[in-house]
Every structure is written in structure tokens, then in C-alpha cells.
Design a protein around this nucleic acid. Sequence first.
DNA 1: GGGTGATGCTGAG
DNA 2: TCAGCCTCACCCC
Length: 277
Amino acid sequence: MPEGHTLYRIASRHNELLAGSYVRASSPQGRFSEDAALIDGRRLDAVDAYGKHLFYRFDAAPVLHVHLGLVGKFPTFSEDRPAPSPATRLVLESDRAVAYLIGPMTCRLIDTAEGEIVIAELGPDPLRGRRGRVAFLGGLERRTKPIGEALLDQGLIAGIGNVFRSELLFLAGVHPLLPANRLDGDNASRLWDLAVDEMRNGVRFGHIVTVRPRDVGARSRADLDRDERLYVYHREGLPCRRCGTAIAVLTMGSRRMWWCPVCQPGGIPASALAPRS
DNA sequence: GGGTGATGCTGAG
DNA sequence: TCAGCCTCACCCC
């Protein structure tokens, strides 16, 4: 489930259980064997998450750059360590824990300068503090594409995925087809604040939960069942938790997004609202 | 047991 | 714009 909060949690856990140690590295799958040898036995100094990217910084060795893509996983085990499956791209092991990298889109060694280039191409990451707001607002002004599409642009805001884009626009009450540069200042600022708050909640809970407890008659977000945590994502045809209107779905940039036609008004002509699929 | 979709991205055309 | 790729959980038979 890799949106930004997931990567942030992985980095935190790996900083806690792997960093500071001389780690053993290997590649059961074989595709990373030669590179793994270059970091095997090196001291892992720190793990940084930026957007959906992970950077592992070693003493006297290249930087390990990981991107999980759609299906990648990087679970960590401190006790009851299962054996790695043959598909495991990379095993990182300290005396305290072992982590298995499975199905990543990117797993490569780079130098520090290349890492800086990757980060420079990303927009501000809401999990790295509210100060990214100015860059986010500036980025919005330069984009004419629909806000629903722009939110997946990692160069505008880093770490947002398909769940957060639908949920954040619902919370902000913004129509997904509104051109990004037509979002007024207040709404744009609010969207940034929502991204910061909701991604932090994702880190806290370990999953995305945007629903306000009062909207489903619960006492706290922690009490919400799995099917109560989101307002619109994957809920087409179901009643909006706030107004009861059927949740709609449209395809933007080859990916589906969900929204409430009543809670997210936008003055968009009806002809533009037909699902593009 | 087979088919499919998934919270992502790239590269060919 | 769309096929392809990475892996696995889940659904249906």
C-alpha cells in the first residue's frame, strides 16, 4: 500500500532497527546480487523517505535507492523471522532485525549527486513539514491540468497516491476537474494543510483513514472498521457519508478517481462530467 | 487452482 | 495513450 505515509513508516522502522548497524545484504532472487555485495557489511547510517522514494545511506558505499511501485513491499521482522521467499530482491539484516524487499519498481545503487537529482525533481513532501506550502501553491499556479490529475504529479506534491487524491479533494470540497491554477488561494492552502494532516494520520494509524468519526457514528478514528475509513475511494454508487448522494467515479490519466457530485461542486459544465473511460 | 486487480511508473509508438 | 512490469491477496470456480 505504498503512498507517502507507508514509505515514511518503513523509513522510521528501518532507522530504528537497521540504521547504526553493519548490515548484511544479499539478493535471494539474484537480480541484485552484485550490487548487494557492494553494501554487504557496510554500516547503514540513515534511511530517508522523500515522497514515495527511500534512500539508504551507508558509510563508504553508494546510496541504495528504492521505489516500491504499485506492488512492492519491504516488511521488517525483529522476532520470528520467516525465511525470505525466492522472489526477495534484497535482504537487509542487522543484529536486531531483517527486512525483505519484494517486487520493487526501483532498487539500485546511486551516488549522492544522483540522489539529490531525484529529490530535486519532486515537489514538497507534506510529511516533511508545512513549509512546503509555498512551493505547492507556486506549483499549482503553473499547472492548467485538472486538480485531480495534478495531485498525482509527484513534481507538484510528493507522496500523494490514488487514495489520497480522491480523499483530499473530498475533504477540501473541490471538484476533481477544476483546473489546478483556478483553485483559489484559500482552498489551495487548505488542500496543503489537509495533505499534511491526513498523511500524518496515515503514519500514525498505519493506514489511510480520512473519515471523521461523527460521520459514521464512531467515537474515534481508531475505532473505524476497514470499510468505514474512507469517504469516496472505491465507493462508486454508495451513498456519500455526508450528504447521501451516490459517489461518482471518473477516469483521469488512466486511473480512476472517486468524488461526491454534491460535496465537491465546481461550476463545471455537466458535459465535462461524463466519465472518461 | 486460475484469473484479476492493486495505494505506480516507464517507455514505445 | 497504452502495454508492460513487479508480486501477491483475493475472488470465483
